[in-house]
Amino acid sequence: MPWIPRGLREGIVTTPYPRRPDGYGRGFRAAVAVRPGPHDRSRVGAAATACPTDAIADGADGPRLDRGRCVLCGRCVALAPEAFELDADFETAGVAREALVVPALPESDAAVAAARAALHRRVRALRRSVHVRHVDAGSDGAVEWEVAALTNPVYDVHRLGIFFTASPRHADLLLATGVGAAGMLGPLRETYEVMPEPKVVIAAGVDAVGGGLVGRGYAAAGGVGDTVPVDVWLPGAPPSPFGLLSAILLAVGLLPGGGHGTARGAGA
């Protein structure tokens, strides 16, 4: 049994998150944040033009960035560093699609709070343990690595009562990835329909949220939101395991502090 001492060799490698913050994350692209103004309008304009997914809109009260479209290419940060910066805060999930826009739209706060309260009332029964069914609806394949990483010793989501299940009939949470490929819309919908109530749906990754770079096409639906009723929207291209974990916790109301439910990142 020479493997046994090896299993003990490293001591505890599991993250303290969500009980305590994890030090990992700095220098890692989780999101783009908009810095407080004033901004150079021409540089912001250049950044908006260069954005490959039209995630940036420059309005009267300054630029807004839709993280649900952002593929984290960093072009805006290079072109207008006084307006945009890469942010390591991975708790980027929102309980409404418009909550992914930073800085937050003034009218979205109340709506987001209401959506969060309604969601958490509905899924109260899932707080002690949640069973997850992942469905790839046309991903690029990378996000599956990040989902699978949740069961490695570093993230070890079993410690939090989060389990992956093969049968959708045993599942509480549908974790959908990918752009909504034409061939997967039916299987995705069927998976959702046979899940028992209460159930909750996460669109994981920018492809699932808004289509990302693939977008809408003859065989791509520009996200999964038209096919299943999404409760939690998680940006990222692909989202990191920490991002995925925080989205699951947000979905069942277990994110420390109740979860903002809206993207932060309006600047320091």
Binding site: G183, G217, Y218, A220
Partner: peptide, 11 residues
Amino acid sequence: VFYKHRGIEAR
């Protein structure tokens, strides 16, 4: 394999 055909080439 067609289930997740996204139409990448046309994109």
